[in-house]
Design a protein around this nucleic acid. Sequence first.
DNA 1: CTGAAAGCGCTTACAG
DNA 2: CTGAAAGCGCTTACAG
Lengths: 356, 356
Amino acid sequence: MARRKPDPTDPGTRPTLKRLALAVGVHASTVSRALDPQRSTVVAPAVVARVRAAAERMGYRPDPVARSLRTRRSHLIGVLVPDIANPVFSPIIGGIAEALAQADYALVVADGGTDGNRQSDMAERLIAQRIDGLILATASRRDDLVERCRARGLPVVLVNRASDDARLAAIVSDDAGGMALVVAHLAALGHRRIGHLAGPAAISTGYLRRSGFEAALSAHGLENDPRRIEAASAYTRAAGAAAAEALLARCPEITAIAAANDLLALGALEAVRARGLLCPGDISVTGHNDMPHVDLVDPPLTTVRIEHREMGQRAARAVLAAIDAKDAAAPAAQTVKLAPTLVVRASSGAPRDLNA
Amino acid sequence: MARRKPDPTDPGTRPTLKRLALAVGVHASTVSRALDPQRSTVVAPAVVARVRAAAERMGYRPDPVARSLRTRRSHLIGVLVPDIANPVFSPIIGGIAEALAQADYALVVADGGTDGNRQSDMAERLIAQRIDGLILATASRRDDLVERCRARGLPVVLVNRASDDARLAAIVSDDAGGMALVVAHLAALGHRRIGHLAGPAAISTGYLRRSGFEAALSAHGLENDPRRIEAASAYTRAAGAAAAEALLARCPEITAIAAANDLLALGALEAVRARGLLCPGDISVTGHNDMPHVDLVDPPLTTVRIEHREMGQRAARAVLAAIDAKDAAAPAAQTVKLAPTLVVRASSGAPRDLNA
DNA sequence: CTGAAAGCGCTTACAG
DNA sequence: CTGAAAGCGCTTACAG
């Protein structure tokens, strides 16, 4: 014999299905059915009532691990972000957590950093935990990781950043549209020579905001001089400051800088100040994201607001739908583009030539 | 018969222990032992080598769900925060995630909000997921939830906020010490009438920063007038603005406001501006936490820096230690107070009476 | 050093 | 409508 069998009537430990069955006087399988709203229709109403009452009284909670082993469903969703501490991703995670909790799923988060190998490694760990689906906030435009998940049949949804492969479900902001709002605003103020602080070209937000910026210039009949675009090496304040410094040195004629995100814009503000220039008197600066508290920086930042929390909620619902679709062979999920809005504050003003 | 037995030699699906055993030509129990560094010493070295090679070749990964069911260990740690999107908690979560990943544990996060009932509910969900330990960032000074977890024998560690019950492991900042740094700084500048924007008294940070503030006034021989202390209803900018407005109306004589955290300080800055006062010319304002980017607000905020990321790492290590201790009946974990540092920026200056 | 068996706590096809 | 049995994929006490 392998081990002493524990007494299923022992009330000392957390109650199991078996003990509950013993207490009610029916078989465990009947208890299992009575407790499942779907299958309880097949059980005698009186039995269902007795089972439910006993479960309540004994404080029975089904063991999710045992259930997972049997059903092959963990009710866990993995989320991989490049940086948990980045203020842009926190509301996304918050939105995901909220929507998942409503559906009785839990959220396993991993910080993948910006290094592709580490991201793969963290994703493998999540998959090893038998997550039912994965939400990726780390995607680059061509991403091995995304492809591998697809190949394994793991439901995957991208959030905030899309991949070039349009077959993948993604919940993103209309990045090009956001830049169109910015350029329209600056053009209306009278700016004609506008620089762009681009994000990394390998990330969809960097690429699409840049091409959106260029398209908007043309639409407004403004010159699109590639020299006036400088790409930052990363979405950080420091990278933004360095890129803005290079841009200001090379193109002193520009009267505004439209940055690809708020962190870059904050860096640009530092570079502007370091050169002894005034914002917006000498040069206007705009951001993208509307991060918390950018309304309090000096000067308050004009930026593009994205509903990150809603983005997270939608991504959660999309993975859940993808999981159901896997069972039902339902239609594939698709890309959703949320419409951003412009928030005008004090960092944008009339160009200096109009002031003079 | 219940069901057709799947062929364990079928290579189509993810390999199991049994299939690996079949491939190597030994029993599953031997494979299990060979793959566990602890118990592989008891297996013939040649067999260990063959098993490991086959595992590698077939890409075998033990199923964590099955393992959990058997060992009663999920390798999952739950974290309950009041608000995932709050910039103070993100680096804490980041630190926890990093330290857990190193120990091969994963992190399940839940957003409990500020409502006690919802917090309990979310904690129950985490526990239902069979987490091995819980990190609470939501603790109030007297917290039912904390007590209930203790009663169940679930390893619990508090982070950032402690409870009044000193038996509980907690990783916190020296909150009183942080306020002492602030008061010393303001006193050195010449301030003698200093107001305090307190946090909620039911939370340790609110209570301890307030009492630390009062103790520091006495230590510097400054008058401790309770009218000069106004408690905010929550740690938000809006609550900070409202409380600061009340404080300024009641005590126009104060020349500085020491806020219990940065969010309250940002609100105070708004209230100061709304009154047509200048910071720091008319009144100095200080914060607590050194949230990201408060160096860029207008004026750059003098505050107390807390190493939130390290706090998270330590909390993770503490739960892991508590889990081991549970097995080993090792000594109970204890409270760790991290030393904060003062960061002087432009929101604090000489009092207006010295300027005149 | 290795194998055979039991069991973790569920769910579900099958039989009645 | 209900019960008995098998099985999800592991680990581990026991026997040899």
